[in-house]
Write a protein that binds this DNA or RNA. Sequence first.
DNA 1: AATTTTCTACTGGTTTTCCGGTAGATAGGG
DNA 2: CCCTATCTACCGGAAAACCAGTAGAAAATT
Lengths: 211, 211
Amino acid sequence: MSGQTIHLAIVDDHPLILEGLQKLLEGASGIEITGTFGNARDCLAFLATGRADILLLDITLPDASGLDLCREIKEISPATRILALSNHSERSMILQMLQQGASGYMLKNVAADELIRCIREAHEGLLTFSKAVREIMAKPSAAELRETPRLTKREKEILLLIADGKTTAEIAGMLHLSPLTIETHRKNLLQKFGTPNVAAMMKAALQHGLM
Amino acid sequence: MSGQTIHLAIVDDHPLILEGLQKLLEGASGIEITGTFGNARDCLAFLATGRADILLLDITLPDASGLDLCREIKEISPATRILALSNHSERSMILQMLQQGASGYMLKNVAADELIRCIREAHEGLLTFSKAVREIMAKPSAAELRETPRLTKREKEILLLIADGKTTAEIAGMLHLSPLTIETHRKNLLQKFGTPNVAAMMKAALQHGLM
DNA sequence: AATTTTCTACTGGTTTTCCGGTAGATAGGG
DNA sequence: CCCTATCTACCGGAAAACCAGTAGAAAATT
């Protein structure tokens, strides 16, 4: 694999960026641009037949979210390594992109040599980031880790069972407790999270990484 | 900051690992071990008064999950950079640890020079991984990206509102639709996710990164 | 030993969700 | 133009969740 020509595709809704990247990568030996696309649709159509080892992917697209597109591409073409190239510099966005299957992340202000390094590293099967991204990722903001309700052991236990779709009666049966007790715990959980129902609570709990 | 002595603390429930790491890091100049702990409690007690620039953190602990401990530490001592040092090699575990505020991740089979490099890089404010971890992270498994139900525009819209804790009636009001219509969508969503209620659906949706 | 937290359980009632259908109107793509 | 997917809307009934309280027993902490 490595040492071969790298087949690169680019998705970005801004034509200027596409041109800029093309020019920028012209000088790089071993990298061949096999397609450039302004939206998700065209990109997917290309990947049905065409080849891309590496895909530079913007997150803001006209017809889909880059997050969705990333996952879709990994489904239909798992071998394609996706490098996010975005203006979004929030830690949470970077993590989401990785969760959707990206193999790297760069900000758009990345320098040419760094961009090329990232493409090469991704092609070698390594997770890769531009330096600016590594700096962002190393320092989680206090806002991101905003205080999580302190749950008791029992509450955590019950929260997990609720998340699994178990009803109050089912949980009561499993834990050999009265359904009324489970209801109380459930009520306390809702109150601790400050949410009106389990749907919102689930979102809060999962975003806090509680499961 | 950089160039100074790095104050390092270690949390690992296996005494042998603690000793091994201490010996291994003796030779490294500029790194001073200020504390070693076998559980979460002792570590938190230390951080209340003591100092640690970098914390090597195992995920499996007797009295808490390393994930929980990581977040707690970042809350009480945000300046402390946390490097996970674990046997868990699943991509999802690594992502979770980052979500909880870690600045890096290494597997326990890491070589001495790599360990030291990671500690130094973390101290310089950079996200850092051992090479093995970068390889794992670059290739998301098919299982992780297991197929997500294909939702229509409307369904996505309603899913988000449900996640915000809105009731059927509220959603109907917002979208100027009949509550019965919303109920149908809700029903279809449950069916597509294969979940018996919104709690489980929320978990599924969030784990698929749908929000 | 004293205090606080957690776990347990209850009453009684209201709201909401969930289940099983059916079905016309309106796109969007081949 | 046709076909499929989507969006809309309905019925009736069962199950579950949510709300607002109270309260004793058991742990855990101080």
